[in-house]
């Protein structure tokens, strides 16, 4: 484990170059380029606020904006993860390097994107004049979020090498997951209406805890019990652990399958 971390540190330039490559390629040949990383959440926010208004489920706009931006990062990561090994088949079959660099740099590239949308989010919150919560927790929240993204990418990325069904399964899962997580609603709609065991179940979904934690630090929402958030966070890190194990098992066979 320590040796692997050392190896990754030694290869940090490769990780950085691949992050740059991923970013360059994403916006190559598109007229608006990097603006899309802001435009697409903007459109989503517009659509959902109109929709929620129509069905008379009022939502506080900063809650919606923060939810969409956080979810966007999550969804982009998982979408890209499908191809982080498969799409680099030419590298995997021709050169030896720690394969984990591929999902790592993919999450890294998305994190760079997320960083910029996050800045825009902060600017928006300042302009909107909302009061911030305990922002010093933010690093832990972001780190846990990255752990979840990497863990899921490791699983989805390796699964897709062996089973191309992964893609179809994932698109369904993502849609269900979106509505099961408090992206376009607030968790108190669940916490107030259902018994305690449903709440536990709700927060077993790592995205519930993450979204809630982001909002508590950024928007000083009414605090949900810390034990619920702790559960979500524990799930995030557990996913990373499982992801690393899955990846370690799958890695030696990438060269044969691709």
């Amino acid at each position: 484990m320590i040796n692997q971390l050392k190896d990754l540190f030694r290869r940090r330039e490769l990780i950085w170059i691949l992050i740059q490559r991923n970013l360059k390629i994403r916006y190559k040949n598109s007229a608006l380029g990097v603006c899309w990383s802001l435009l697409s959440p903007l459109f989503l926010i517009l659509i959902y606020s109109v929709f929620l208004g129509l069905i008379r489920v009022p939502i506080h706009l900063p809650t919606l904006v923060s939810g969409i931006i956080v979810w966007q990062f999550h969804a982009l990561c998982l979408g890209d993860s499908l191809h982080c090994i498969l799409g680099n088949a030419n590298l995997v079959t021709k050169a030896a390097f720690p394969r984990i660099i591929l999902p790592l740099s993919m999450v890294g590239a998305n994190a760079v994107n997320f960083f910029f949308s996050f800045l825009v989010l902060l600017a928006y919150l300042l302009v909107a004049g909302t009061s911030f919560g305990p922002v010093w927790w933010l690093p832990l929240v972001v780190l846990t979020h990255l752990a979840l993204s990497l863990g899921l990418s490791l699983i989805a990325g390796s699964a897709n090498v062996f089973f191309r069904d992964t893609e179809h399964v994932l698109s369904v899962v993502m849609l269900a997951w979106f509505f099961m997580s408090p992206v376009i609603y607030e968790p108190n709609m669940i916490t107030e209406a259902f018994p305690a065991w449903v709440q536990w179940l709700f927060f077993a979904n790592p995205m519930s805890g993450l979204l809630t934690a982001y909002r508590q630090t950024l928007l000083s929402h009414d605090p949900v019990g810390l034990e619920y958030i702790a559960l979500s966070f524990a799930v995030c890190w557990a996913v990373l652990g499982v992801g690393l194990l899955v990846f370690r098992g799958a890695e030696p066979r990438f060269g044969d399958e691709l």
Partner: peptide
């Protein structure tokens, strides 16, 4: 294919360590 020769040279170098 989308990267320039220069970018690819540095990428290939980094891959080889």
């Amino acid at each position: 294919p989308d990267l320039t020769g220069r970018e690819n040279v540095f990428l290939a170098g980094a891959i080889m360590g």
